[in-house]
Design a protein around this nucleic acid. Structure first.
Lengths: 338, 338
DNA sequence: GAGATTATTGTAATCGATTACATTTGAAAT
DNA sequence: ATTTCAAATGTAATCGATTACAATAATCTC
């Protein structure tokens, strides 16, 4: 392996000078610089990043912990993170937990061992004191998720208000029996969406039958299964709001499997606006999250934290939008569906 | 920051002893070990990985270069890679090129700078001599892609034979006018699939009209657009084979948009078997690649390379399968479609 | 041209671990 | 009690860069 002293020897200078040339620090004579560059070229020298990192005690790497990399929702966010990372000469270490809390814990150690300068969590199912603890010592940003009463910087949409918005849309279409398929209720974001649903229903004085709220796990299959439960009722809901698009599509599959149609017989709203939401038929009405933007913002915040810059605030709420496509329809009294 | 000498001081031993306890090298007295462990606990010490890496000149990190992380095909492979990586105490540095060749080049330097012990490429659009060069110096494995005449270890399916298999399936269903939507022809895997298509057609003495082969770019949109071209013909093909599932689904969208039905009017076959292939309606008939297995195998090979173990061979071909779902139908002379 | 000032380069410490080699300790053998 | 050997521990070099500080060279001022 070619090291800095090989270059120094060949160029007949000290390692310090080579290092100065490398870092462009400006105090090197033109001819010397050329000599050094020539030697570098000749030897095809590449500085050993490990040594540099050790000396500077920084890795120029950040860790992103993702619950499921095969979910396009998260990979879009990752794209946003990478975009800003590259601009700022950071690299991205990927930690996929496969929805396994244990694995989340393991990634905290990677940060502690200084293998990364900071961490973005797209999942936060660990006990909050563990997160608080590590966030007090290292730069940590939460994206999508947040911790109640915590000061860890967070980027997300307002899940409560967007769920309320989606629910209200259904209510305004005339629906009263609305089913809700929630995400796993141990994550706060699921609870927020449920809360938004409840708020909207309460605001319109519509009582919620407890059976019409079912807990899924964000998977296509769970959407299918929960919808099947609804369909087994004497009086199934006339509309269903699913806490993510996968479950919404699962629900539509279930509806179709019973020979019913979407939106004619039952309306469906999803959440996230993954790519497939617009491709699927019928195209899914859903809440669109600015995934790329969330990723970008999270990385921007993390860089500020790493540089010990002051943050203006520590909760950043981005705008979501209700995207109206083809899965919802006005509900008119039985016999008069239009 | 707590360092090894802090621990050594507190435990009243030398750093060497602490290090021995850390690495479990066995030659430390029981009581000493306990003293050290106690100190470690008390100080909440975590070894600085950078220092260890520098000393050992290894990073326990591998780099994976992906053309598009939002494509579930690649993220599934990534899952396989990560699975084996974790088992062997490796971490995964993610390099998403966003289908940009330039970005591919950049990632080679990360390897050169020893920021990773090896690299798995899921895309190989760079000039082959660059790849050969780096592969001669560092552990590199190609997955999905391969280089003609190269000795870089490769894991993939046999794209030629699987494309042939899919085409033959259509031919056996009675189709003669078969359209092919290829991937970008600057990647070898696309050329292989085209080759397989041609072979099957030739074997059955079916001439290929050049207009019936169109080059897409693996995106949903390009599938849609190319299919629109086919549909503009006086005599559109009765079946279409797309070189990946996204394009196949795009093609189906185009067919539906003209008021035609799949498979009744036109049959469609895809390639890859992404999750959405089975969810979409009609469920897509496609070639299934063992994505997780490809990832696993690639990582296993890379570890062997890193450990300088001998490989038995350097081309690993995994089995693919034709998954028959609902997008193909027998073709009977006009007027007698069944 | 002497002295002051600035530009350029070199020397050596440093980052935090690992490890070859040296030393000490303790037990067994005689 | 002395010698021998193995086990346990310590000392210091090492990995390859960066950088504080020191030293030298070049330039300017009068």
């Amino acid at each position: 392996m070619v090291t800095i002293s090989d270059v120094a020897k060949l160029a007949n200078v000290s390692t310090a000078t080579v290092s100065r040339v490398l870092s462009n620090s400006g105090n090197v004579k033109k001819e010397t610089t050329e000599k050094v560059l020539e030697a570098i070229q000749k030897l095809n020298y590449q500085p050993n990043i490990l040594a540099r990192q050790l000396r500077k005690l920084e890795t120029k790497t950040i860790l992103v912990v993702v619950p499921d990399i095969t979910n396009t929702f998260f990979s879009k966010i990752l794209r946003g993170i990478e975009h800003v990372a590259i601009e700022n000469d950071y690299e991205v270490l990927l930690g996929d937990t496969g929805n396994n809390v244990e694995r989340e814990r393991v990634y905290l150690d990677i940060l502690r061992q200084k293998k990364a300068d900071g961490m973005i969590l797209l999942t936060a199912r660990l006990e909050s004191h563990l997160l608080e603890e590590i966030a007090s010592e290292f730069p940590v940003v939460l994206a999508c998720e947040y911790l109640e009463g915590s000061t860890i910087p967070t980027v997300s949409i307002d899940n409560v208000s967007s769920a309320r918005k989606a629910t209200e849309y259904l209510i305004n279409l005339g629906h009263r029996r609305i089913g809700f398929i929630s995400g796993p209720l141990n994550v706060i974001l699921s609870r927020d969406r449920l809360k938004g649903f409840r708020q909207a229903m309460a605001q319109h004085n519509i009582p919620i039958e407890s059976f019409l709220v079912q807990e899924g796990d964000f998977s296509f299959e769970s959407g299918y299964n929960m919808m099947m439960k609804f369909l087994a009722l004497d009086q199934p809901p006339t509309a269903v709001f699913a806490a993510n698009d996968e479950m919404a599509i699962g629900a539509i599959k279930a509806i179709k499997s019973k020979g019913l149609r979407v939106p004619d017989d039952i309306s469906v709203v999803g959440f996230d606006d993954i790519q497939f939401a617009s491709i699927y038929e019928p195209a899914l009405t859903t809440i669109s999250q600015p995934m790329f933007e969330i990723g970008k913002k999270a990385m921007e915040l993390l860089i500020k934290l790493i540089n010990k810059d002051q943050l203006e605030k520590n909760q950043y709420i981005l705008r979501d939008r209700l995207i109206i496509r083809d899965t919802c329809k006005k509900y008119v009294e039985i016999g008069f569906k239009m």
